[in-house]
Amino acid sequence: MNFKNFITHTLLLLLLALIQIIFLKNLALFGVAFCFLYLLGILNLPIPISHVPLILLSFGLGLAVDVFYDTIGIHAASASLMGFLRPYWLKAISPTGGYDDSAKPNLPEMGIGWYISYSLPMIFAFSLVFFTADQWGTGGFFGVLNKSILSSIFTVVLAIIVQLLFFKRRREIR
């Protein structure tokens, strides 16, 4: 990762966390579909990033969002699970011949079909842990599942919209 990429990703993480805290904190579609847009920052990190920094970064980002949500530990636990699962899932769904060296796991580069199959299970894993921890001992499993499914769909839809609007396609003709 060169220096420019490093700056871009850091700024993206900070911006997404800020948007999450300021605008998306109390947003819940129909009271069940939450939006965890800041996960886009973890999902979009370059593919060759090593595993240990990825987990630490996810944990730190989760903890930072947690502090504003007053749910200390819950975002951190779910986000670090997502960071832990990411390399395995990327390997599982890798296209034949593997990834390009310069490929980034985002929508403009990889196409919508791949992106949904990449992000939806990851965000679902996050939501499942998140709502299980949040509703521990209070509600049934059905409520948790319901919220997780709807939240992951909503988050993926919003993530796709954000990338369509703001992410440039960077493959120039050489």
Binding site: A77, S80, L81, A133
Partner: peptide, 14 residues
């Protein structure tokens, strides 16, 4: 191992 450690830490915080 790092993942397990961080999860335990997070559960402790919760």
């Amino acid at each position: 191992l790092l993942f397990v450690l961080l999860e335990v830490l997070a559960i402790g915080l919760i």
